[in-house]
Design a protein around this nucleic acid. Sequence first.
DNA 1: GTGAGTTTAATACAAGTGTTTTAAACGTAT
DNA 2: ATACGTTTAAAACACTTGTATTAAACTCAC
Lengths: 219, 219
Amino acid sequence: MKTGTEASSSGTEQRLLEAAGEVFAEYGYRAATVRQICEKAKANLASVNYYFGDKDGLYLAVLRYLHTNATDIYPPSLGLQPGANAEDRLHAFIRSLLHRLLSEGRPNWHIKLAARELIEPTPALDVIVDEAIRPLSQELESIIVELLGLETNDEIVRLCMLSVVSQCGFYHHSRAVISRLYPAQNFGAADIERLARHVTQFSLSAIKSLSMKTKAETE
Amino acid sequence: MKTGTEASSSGTEQRLLEAAGEVFAEYGYRAATVRQICEKAKANLASVNYYFGDKDGLYLAVLRYLHTNATDIYPPSLGLQPGANAEDRLHAFIRSLLHRLLSEGRPNWHIKLAARELIEPTPALDVIVDEAIRPLSQELESIIVELLGLETNDEIVRLCMLSVVSQCGFYHHSRAVISRLYPAQNFGAADIERLARHVTQFSLSAIKSLSMKTKAETE
DNA sequence: GTGAGTTTAATACAAGTGTTTTAAACGTAT
DNA sequence: ATACGTTTAAAACACTTGTATTAAACTCAC
């Protein structure tokens, strides 16, 4: 019997991970069934038990697998070249996040699964936060610090950071409502670009305004 | 056998609706069990079947019940007196929404259930959008139109509206992440007030800036 | 080629789910 | 008080779920 975590490329194990990732991302941990995953992976029902012990082990393995390929969720291209100015970096950050959250492509279950964990946390959320979310949020915070200028405090930075990511996340998990509120709204590549421009402009205006305000207060 | 939709105040029926509302809001339609609901309602297991036909009928009845008491989710106090200026109305709107979304009180399953429907839609989402969400969004849009001035277009209004509500919604469904990112963050009444001030200020700055920009462009 | 170890396959099992059935308790008009 | 419709109560049923069991098929060194 196979056990442990070493990645034997037995084929089925890999297929199970991919299938489980998609199914978990689509239906959530509880609603996803082992049978459904095995069917999609073209594997036998007992295989998930054989390779991962139980359903929970499979889920943890998927999260580990997700984190191993963390470059997918946290790509280097996200921040442009480090020398770029803060405005452009903010735009790139928002653009990248929105594309990942809204693109309909098949292999984007990574971020959907992470987004699901945010909303419906399992004990695995802690490692996700530490290893995937926090680096992202810190990068965004550094951009915002640069935009706000030096005279600011951590709470304002944090609130602005959350205001930015909230706008991106909203279009992901509330897509169903938006589609019903505005049936004409689509989410093609061009729409995402337009969205990114708006979020950037909206946030940039707000942050700059806050920057002036705090400057005025400290004078 | 009782059937139909007339509200016989048999006691248990009412208790079932309240209990189901809480449980559905907390665990979601699928994860919620009728046994759990009946236990909380101190009703027999078969009662949900007796009064509502099946679990789905109970869920629909809860949504209808929620909409009947829609003043809870859409309170008149939300918009201050109609004569108030747009800034104050925006602040009141955000404050009210955040309080409803973040307050830990018991009887606030209404908005939590609605928020859950947004993320994980069931066929019932359509009526929720039409009867609860759309009025809210239109009120917010009218505030934003007033803030933007006359020279604007629908898309900008819509994008700004979504930017505002996204910030509020984010603190609701991503609370778990925020708590982990910033363990010091609490969500007491005072914190909510601070949050509301930030969201208002952030959004107001952005909208005003957009207003000036479109004015400049049309001149 | 053989045989031990590994992987796959098919089925069975126990627990939990929504639902149904059956009967008992209750309320109320006559 | 009685009879009838309504409501509650308890148990059973059918189904799905995750998991365990068992045997067959495969792999590959010797």
